[in-house]
Each structure stands twice: as structure tokens, then as C-alpha cells.
Nucleic acid binder design. Structure first.
Lengths: 251, 251
DNA sequence: CAGGATGCTATACACGTGATCAGTCAGCCG
DNA sequence: CGGCTGACTGATCACGTGTATAGCATCCTG
């Protein structure tokens, strides 16, 4: 019943068979694995060895390490989107649940974690995809009445995504001795003591009083010092889609 | 009034004056800055240049780069604890608020972020300190009735900390063009659109129904297949301090 | 005034890294 | 067959890095 949070495992189509594959593709596959396992700092010689090709062949095919990574990024993103669209067909699927299913998906998840870890533009791209997916799931959940509406869906989406992936990343970084498979396994078993806090927070919140929220919302709608002195009061800044009219507080 | 979440700036005692300082200390100071600004991959030659000493002097004083980092870690932790104890004297202080105050504190915050980013044991140590602090604040907040009690305070503490720091880390990693000062500045202005989602989540939660939480709690207290077949049902595992008796649902 | 310890510098070394390049081999087309 | 194209290899280069070493200056001390 908590299927939105975690879910039975599901068979995910494995990537192309390991060996007998054009060398170029084989390098790409191995590179994705290596990047996921050891991070983007992994020496190209390691990739070459595991793909059973020479170092030169990698540069011959991809030109540079950066280009290789770009191609791996694209491929992972492609597979992620495949998983995603496959998930909307199969109801009651939540991203993390599907990603933690055993199979090639673990490489995808850990690779994305690594990409976020490496930061920069690639991180933004992956995060954007995650937000995008969350948007669909959230809209559906709100429509079905499972989840409360927010005064600013977009901000909440972004924050929840950053939060969830961030927690995952921290957990990942603090257990470097785990292989990717062991890591997602440790996620799959509720062994990580996160289910209860999440359910509590999502169900009951944290604060006992509505005062802070109500104050802030009313402050957003009519900022105090409307005249001069713009310094102490940060502008309300409804830059993005202005928060929709506040719904009835308990709706 | 939302002082628990964010707070006016506060004067934080700056570290020792920049120049006229024993070379060893100067190197340490500069190293902390460099590590915060560029990460631990920064070349020692950069540190040497900014500290206006030769490269050899660093190894002469510290022996190795790892040792230098260890010392910086210790120093940052020391200052963090200083800030922390100072904060408990001054009421209504929340960690992030104090850390985002301008001054040397920004180096502390960003350094901790970098340490978590680098992972491994140092990351665990810093996170443990953060959890420790959160424990005090949380206990106080629960006692004063501001925050709901949890069925497993320790798990909630850990999860909230990972979440908060993780979100911060993700935000930090996706804006590598910002200097540490600019980064914390962007946090200080509510410009990051996180206040509203946080307040909503903390006040109203996310889910409209208590079913998931109640189901899970009752499941925790009497796991289904109590006989054999330990596989599909992860052990209730009250490893840590067993969750206290479930408080009245809405308390 | 020795003389030694200490703070400090400059140079050189060792190593791992990604990139480069000449060259070999297989397959295929004319 | 002749010749060309492309996959592929091994050796080599160029470079940035942390570390080690030798030497110099300064200052305190006996």
C-alpha cells in the first residue's frame, strides 16, 4: 500500500549482452559501469582493460575522455527516460522504487548519482529530468487526492527532488566501501531507517503550529515595508509562476 | 518568527587576521579557504602561492597534503563547535541560519559541504557533528511543543540532517560558478524558493491520508509472517533504541 | 664569535594521467 | 591481384601532481 514509496522489484530489460558486441558499444557499456563504480576519475586504462581493448582504441572511437563521458551521459539519460515511460504504463510506480530494482537499473541510478556528484551542467541536466518525472507523478497524485496541493507546485517539486536525491547522495558518499549493487540493495531493504521518518514527515509534518506558514504566506502576499528601505526585506520575488491563490489551509 | 528556519545575520568572530601570522597558521587558513573554494583537489602550489610561501614549506610544516587536510578538518570542526555552543547561548538559533551569516562562517559551511562531497570517513565525522547538533535543537523544540515528537527520534534526526545537507549539497554542486560567498548569499536571500516548500512540508505534510503511516507502524509492531519465511519481510529490526510507544496519532 | 637549530626556498624526482602517432592487420572494392 | 580504408595496437610524449633533497639565511645560545 505504500507503493508510492517503495515497491516490489520489477524485471528491467538488461542492457545489450556483455561480450559479443561491436567494440565501440562495448567500450561505452564498460565505461558506464566504470563511471558508476569508481566515478568519473577512473583512468581510461581501467576502462580499456575491462573492455579488453587497447587504450588507443578508446580515443580512436571517442576522441577524448570528455567525449566518451558525454556519450555515456546521453545513453544513461536515454535509458532513464525509457524506464520512466515504461513506468507510466505500469501504474503505481515511483521512480526510486523502479530504479532500485535489480538489473541494469542500478547502474543507471548510481550513474546519475555520480553525475550529480560531479556537478556542473551534466548534473543540472539529470536533475531536470528527475524534476520532470516528479512533476508527472506529483500532478497525478494531487489529482487523485493522495497528495495535498501546494501553493507553488514548481518550487515544491524542485525542493523535494533536491532533498531526496541529496539524501541519497549523502548516503552514497558516506558508504564508499559499498559497490553500486550493495548500495541499492541497502536501499531496497528498509534497513536504512528512512521509511518511518519519511512517512511521519509526509503525513504529520514536523511543526505543531500553523503560525509560521500562515505568517509567511501572508507576508508573501503583502510584504511589510512597501515603501523604501528595500534592504532588510528580501523582495517577495514571484519570479517564476506566481504562487497560485492560496488554497483553503487544510485542503 | 520563523526564526527556527532562518534568522537575522549575526556577527561571527572572524578567524585570525589574514596576514601577519605565523606562516604555519597562515598556510592552514589559506588551505581552508582554498579547499572551500576549489575543493580538495586544489594543487598545493595554489595554496602555497596564495599563502605567499614556497611549496616546500607546506610539506615541511605538515608533512603531506593529507596531513594538511586532516589539520584543516580538525580546525573547521573546532570552529563549528564554537559556533554551535555560542548558538545555544543565544536562543532561537538554527544551524543553517548561523552558518549563512556573513563572515568566516561561510568558509565553515562550504568547507563542511566540500568534506561531505569528498565522502569517506571525514564526511561521516562532519555529518555526525551535524546530527549531534540537530539532536539538541530538536530535543529542545520537542520539549517546548514547537515540534511533534517522533516514534524514532534518532532516525528522524539522521534523515532530516541527510536531507537538509543533501539538498544544500545538490544546490551547491549545480552552481559551480558561484563563489562560496555568493553561494551562501543566494541562500540567505530567500531567493532559492525553498522557504515556502519547507514550511508547507513541515506544517501540513504531503499526504492527505494517514493510512500509509498507520499501516506501516502497525506493521512494525506486529510483522506479518511471524513464523518462517524471513525473506519477503525485512525484520522489524529495532536495532537502535526501539521506537518509543507510538504517541497518540495527532498529538 | 662559533655553532647549531629553525624557517624557508629552489630544484629535481617519481608517478599517474590523457593524448598522440607511427605502424600492423583484416576486409573489401575495383 | 592492388590498393585503400578502417579497426586496432604499442610505445611515446607532455603535463600536472605530491614528495624528497640540498642549500641558504636568520636567530638564538653558550
Amino acid at each position: 500500500m505504500y507503493s508510492i514509496l517503495f515497491m516490489r522489484t520489477a524485471e528491467v530489460p538488461d542492457g545489450p549482452s556483455p561480450a559479443d558486441l561491436t567494440a565501440r558499444a562495448r567500450i561505452r557499456e564498460v565505461a558506464i559501469e566504470c563511471f558508476a563504480e569508481e566515478g568519473f576519475g577512473v583512468p581510461m586504462r581501467t576502462i580499456a582493460a575491462r573492455a579488453e581493448v587497447s587504450l588507443g582504441l578508446i580515443t580512436h572511437h571517442f576522441g577524448s575522455k570528455a567525449a566518451l563521458r558525454t556519450e555515456c551521459d546521453a545513453e544513461v539519460l536515454r535509458r532513464y527516460h525509457a524506464l520512466k515511460t515504461e513506468a507510466i504504463a505500469d501504474p503505481s510506480a515511483y521512480l526510486l522504487a523502479r530504479l532500485t530494482a535489480p538489473g541494469t537499473a542500478v547502474s543507471i541510478l548510481v550513474y546519475i548519482l555520480r553525475a550529480i556528484h560531479a556537478g556542473g551542467r551534466p548534473a543540472r541536466i539529470f536533475l531536470e529530468s528527475l524534476v520532470e518525472h516528479a512533476r508527472d507523478v506529483m500532478a497525478e497524485s494531487v489529482a487523485s487526492g493522495l497528495v495535498r496541493a501546494s501553493r507553488d507546485e514548481e518550487a515544491r517539486l524542485r525542493y523535494l527532488t533536491y532533498q531526496a536525491m541529496g539524501a541519497l547522495l549523502v548516503q552514497f558518499l558516506t558508504t564508499p566501501e559499498l559497490t553500486p549493487d550493495e548500495f541499492v540493495a541497502s536501499l531496497r531493504d528498509g534497513r536504512s531507517d528512512t521509511i518511518l521518518p519519511v512517512l511521519e514527515l509526509y503525513t504529520e509534518g514536523l511543526l505543531t503550529s500553523r503560525a509560521m506558514l500562515d505568517d509567511y504566506v501572508s507576508y508573501l502576499w503583502e510584504p511589510p515595508s512597501a515603501s523604501a528601505d528595500p534592504d532588510p526585506a528580501p523582495a517577495p520575488a514571484p519570479e517564476r509562476t506566481a504562487p497560485s491563490a492560496p488554497p483553503p489551509p487544510t485542503a
